[in-house]
Computed example of a mutant assay.
Amino acid sequence: MTHTASRRTVLLATGATALAVGCSDNDDNGGSASATTSSAAVGDARVLARTADVPVGGGKIFKDEKVVVTQPTEGDFKAFSAVCTHQGCTVASVADGTINCPCHRSSFKISDGAPTGGPATTPLPAERITVQGDSIVLA
């Protein structure tokens, strides 16, 4: 006998999984460390983190997804590609209002991904995220 899961069953199961991936690697100074937890799937989207995992005025880098999520002001979440537009290195930190690339010291604003220093002249491309309750979901 074949059993087919309903959409509701799948959503409930993935929602429980999403709650289990809320671990944070943030350091004590409001900066961020790379995420090492894998994201949970919700339909075609993936839960990256809980909103509490992204500090106000800072951000969190998701190396596997090549995405950086920032919170420039309380409750305002942004997402950008974590691939530097200069030569394709993965950004390594978020501190003092900028997303920072270790390769040639390019930096980008956490509010809009615009370059603020270094050789990069092109902004980090925006990524699509939504906030669903206390979850940040990558579309």
Rank of each mutant, 00 (worst) to 15 (best):
M1E: 13
M1I: 13
T2P: 15
T4V: 15
A5V: 06
A5M: 13
R8S: 15
L11I: 13
L12E: 14
L12Q: 14
T14E: 14
G15C: 04
G15H: 08
T17N: 01
A20K: 10
A20I: 03
A20N: 07
V21R: 01
C23I: 03
S24M: 00
D25S: 14
D27K: 08
D27Y: 09
D28R: 11
G31N: 15
G31Y: 11
A33R: 10
A33E: 10
A33M: 05
A35C: 08
T36E: 11
T37G: 08
T37Y: 00
T37R: 01
T37V: 03
A40Q: 05
A41I: 05
V42Y: 02
G43H: 05
D44P: 13
A45M: 07
R46N: 12
L48P: 04
A49H: 00
A49S: 15
R50Q: 11
T51C: 01
A52L: 13
V54A: 05
P55Y: 06
P55E: 04
V56Q: 06
G57C: 05
K60E: 14
K60D: 04
K60W: 11
I61S: 00
F62K: 00
K63S: 07
E65K: 10
E65F: 01
K66H: 11
V67G: 00
V69C: 10
P72A: 03
T73A: 13
T73E: 13
E74Q: 11
E74R: 10
G75V: 04
G75Q: 09
G75N: 13
A82S: 14
C84D: 14
C84W: 01
T85V: 12
H86Q: 11
H86S: 06
H86I: 04
Q87N: 09
G88W: 03
A92R: 06
D96K: 09
T98D: 06
N100D: 15
C101N: 08
C101L: 06
H104D: 12
H104R: 11
H104Y: 08
R105T: 14
R105M: 13
S106Y: 09
S106T: 12
F108S: 03
I110N: 05
D112E: 12
A114P: 02
A114I: 02
P115Q: 03
G117K: 11
G118L: 07
P119W: 01
P119Y: 00
T121M: 10
T121H: 07
T121D: 13
T121G: 05
P125V: 12
P125K: 05
A126V: 14
I129A: 04
T130N: 08
V131Q: 08
G133T: 06
G133S: 05
D134F: 02
D134I: 08
S135Y: 09
I136V: 12
I136R: 00
V137I: 12
L138M: 09
A139M: 06
A139E: 14
